[in-house]
Every structure is written in structure tokens, then in C-alpha cells.
């Protein structure tokens, strides 16, 4: 049986999404049996230019060098998957896109002559066609396992982008916003984490990105009703996935008002 070839690439990120692979434990060894891992620098195999069937990409595009690399990776992969907030939305570091860069200090990471840092931290999809986006900060091992299994069976993966609220209902988790007045982004955020934050008694902070058909203005109004001022509301939308729509425009509207 011919094993599909896969590669795992890293751009500008914290590396947490790769851990979705490395934390699979024995399933990682089982995975290595079913597929051929051509490139996964952290785990060992190194061959960045290998031609693969599936490429998993973590991290955002943040430097000139990244721009060149991603083009090569796209050209060498039949199916490209972006994984995690950095790859799907530019990540938490996309907060710098909005900054007045003149006032930001290069000295913290002063790079006098080497890589130009691009002005923005951008998602992979801004630069190449992405076949599948796995949202999350971080994604979890279940998302990897489900995706790979679907692809091995030649099924097009179709992650649900339902709101977190549905997960709370499934778990019979009492709504923290209604019952405790917590500021919760669940109503506009994709499920995938299993409603972790409500389960520990706090409001969701939208690390899984915008759900489909998210009604952000309505939630913004509700947050206002809970006592948040515009700046705080803006920060709720402009956090882990600030560059993703409709978080970005809702957040920016509140920032200016």
C-alpha cells in the first residue's frame, strides 16, 4: 500500500499547534505507520522541499523569507492545511498590524540588517490557496486525527463552524453569560475546544476564531449591556484572532467610537 506523504511546516508562531501532533502519544507512532512523514523538523525528519500529498502549516507569514517559503511549500503540496490561529488568522501577533509602527520599538528584537520584518503578520490564505483551515489556539490532537483519518479515507474534511453555545447546550453547561454576567464570546466563536472556558466558570475569549454567520454587532451590544466600555469591547474582538472577519471590523468600530 502506498503511504501518503505528509509534511509539517512552521512559520511565525509559538509552536503550540505542532504539539497537537507531538502530544498524540502513541497515536503519533500509529500515524507514522499510516503515512510517510517527509518533513517535520521538530520530530526529526527534515526535507523542506519534499513533494507531499498533505502539508500542515503552522504560523503566520511575518518576514520576507516566509513569503518565499510558503510559495515553495504550496507548489510542493497537493493539499495544504493551515492549522492554528497564526496560520488561519495571523495569530495574536496580528495585533501589531494595527499599530502605529513608528511608535513600536524595534529595539526589543532589533534586526539591523537581516530579515526584513513585514509590516503585518498575515494568515497563510492571504498568500496561497489553502485547502483546509483548522482553527484554534491551539488546535487539538483530535482535530489532527479526524482530519488525517478523513483524508486517508478520501473524505473531504468538513469541520463544523458552529457557535460555542451549542457545545455548552450539549454539555448541559449553564450559560455563564446569562447566569453569571460573564463576558463571553461564545456566541460568535467556533466550537472545537469543547467549551473549555465556560466549563471552568469563565467566559470564552474566542481563541477558536469566528463562527459561521457570527452576529458580532449584537454581541457587542450585549457586552455593553454587561457594563463594558467601547475600548474593552474592542479588545474582546481584537485578541487572539484580531485579523479575522468579522472580528476585525466589529472590533475596529468599537475602537473608534
Amino acid at each position: 500500500m502506498i503511504k501518503p506523504k505528509i509534511a509539517v511546516h512552521k512559520f511565525s508562531s509559538c509552536d503550540g499547534c505542532q504539539l497537537a501532533f507531538l502530544n498524540m502519544g502513541e497515536s503519533l507512532l500509529a500515524l507514522a505507520d499510516r503515512v510517510e512523514i517527509m518533513h517535520f523538523a521538530e520530530a526529526g525528519p527534515v526535507d523542506e522541499n519534499a513533494s507531499v500529498d498533505i502539508a500542515f502549516v503552522e504560523g503566520s507569514i511575518a518576514t520576507q523569507h516566509d513569503l518565499e517559503r510558503i510559495q515553495k511549500i504550496r507548489a510542493n503540496s497537493a493539499y495544504l492545511i493551515s492549522m492554528g490561529a497564526c496560520a488561519t488568522a495571523g495569530g495574536i501577533q496580528a495585533l501589531r498590524n494595527m499599530a502605529d509602527t513608528q511608535q513600536w520599538i524595534a529595539g526589543v528584537y532589533a534586526q539591523p540588517e537581516y530579515i526584513d520584518t513585514l509590516d503585518n503578520s498575515e494568515p497563510i490564505s492571504d498568500h496561497v490557496k489553502v485547502d483546509l483551515a483548522l482553527w484554534g489556539c491551539p488546535i487539538n490532537s483530535q482535530q489532527i486525527i479526524t482530519t488525517v483519518r478523513d483524508l486517508l479515507f478520501r473524505v473531504t474534511p468538513k469541520p463544523e463552524r458552529d457557535k460555542l453555545c451549542l457545545e455548552c447546550k450539549r454539555q448541559q453547561q449553564v450559560c455563564v453569560m446569562v447566569s453569571r454576567g460573564e463576558s463571553c464570546m461564545g456566541a460568535v466563536t467556533q466550537n472545537g475546544c469543547g467549551a473549555l472556558c465556560p466549563s471552568v466558570g469563565r467566559g470564552c475569549y474566542a481563541c477558536f476564531g469566528p463562527a459561521e454567520d457570527a452576529n458580532c454587532p449584537a454581541l457587542a451590544n450585549r457586552l455593553e449591556g454587561l457594563g463594558l466600555v467601547d475600548r474593552e469591547i474592542a479588545q474582546k474582538f481584537l485578541f487572539i484572532n484580531s485579523a479575522a472577519e468579522p472580528f476585525q471590523s466589529t472590533g475596529n468600530k468599537r475602537k473608534q467610537s
Binding site: S12, Q111, Y205, E232, Q235
Partner: peptide
């Protein structure tokens, strides 16, 4: 090389309540 992610900058102006998550 560290592609700058500017954490120390975008923490400015955020509440201490966001600190652990950031």
C-alpha cells in the same frame, strides 16, 4: 532569529485580566 511578534508591545493598554492568556 526571532521574527518579532512584539508581545511586550501589544500587552500595553490591556487589562491584567488578559495577561495570562496573552
Amino acid at each position: 532569529y526571532e521574527p518579532p511578534r512584539y508581545f511586550e508591545k501589544f500587552l500595553e493598554g490591556r487589562s491584567y485580566q488578559d495577561l495570562a492568556d496573552t
